[in-house]
């Protein structure tokens, strides 16, 4: 395995989408190539951190109620 293939497999690895054989090859490459290993770790961590980007708070029940009422009036009350 070379660095180019390794970087292409990264995404599939994160999706849990690669076969056991390929996974072993990938792990062997990562043991030998520090550059790929660092890329791999920091890329994976970037994905993990993106998941932690604050999500806005939930829509309040009152707003959901208002929306439901609006939809009802405009589309269901005819």
């Amino acid at each position: 395995m070379n660095c180019k293939i390794c970087s292409k497999l990264l995404q599939e690895y994160l999706e849990d989408n690669i076969s056991e054989d390929l996974m072993n090859e990938l792990n062997n490459h990562l043991k030998e190539c520090e550059r790929c290993a660092i890329f791999f770790r920091t890329y994976s961590l970037t994905v993990t951190l993106s998941r932690q980007v604050e999500t806005p708070c939930c829509v309040s029940p009152e707003k959901i109620q208002r929306l439901t009422l609006l939809l009802y009036e405009r589309l269901f009350s005819k």
């Binding site: 550059r35 660092i38 890329f39 770790r41 920091t42 994976s44 961590l45 951190l49 993106s50 932690q52 980007v53 604050e54």
Partner: peptide, 27 residues
């Protein structure tokens, strides 16, 4: 940037409000 391994930094740095803001702004 490829050769700097920041994955070993402690969680309080990685998950700090400042780093979240950097990531949010970068997105």
């Amino acid at each position: 940037t490829v050769t700097y391994d920041w994955s070993t930094l402690p969680d309080d740095v990685l998950l700090s409000e400042e780093s979240r803001t950097v990531l949010r702004d970068s997105i």
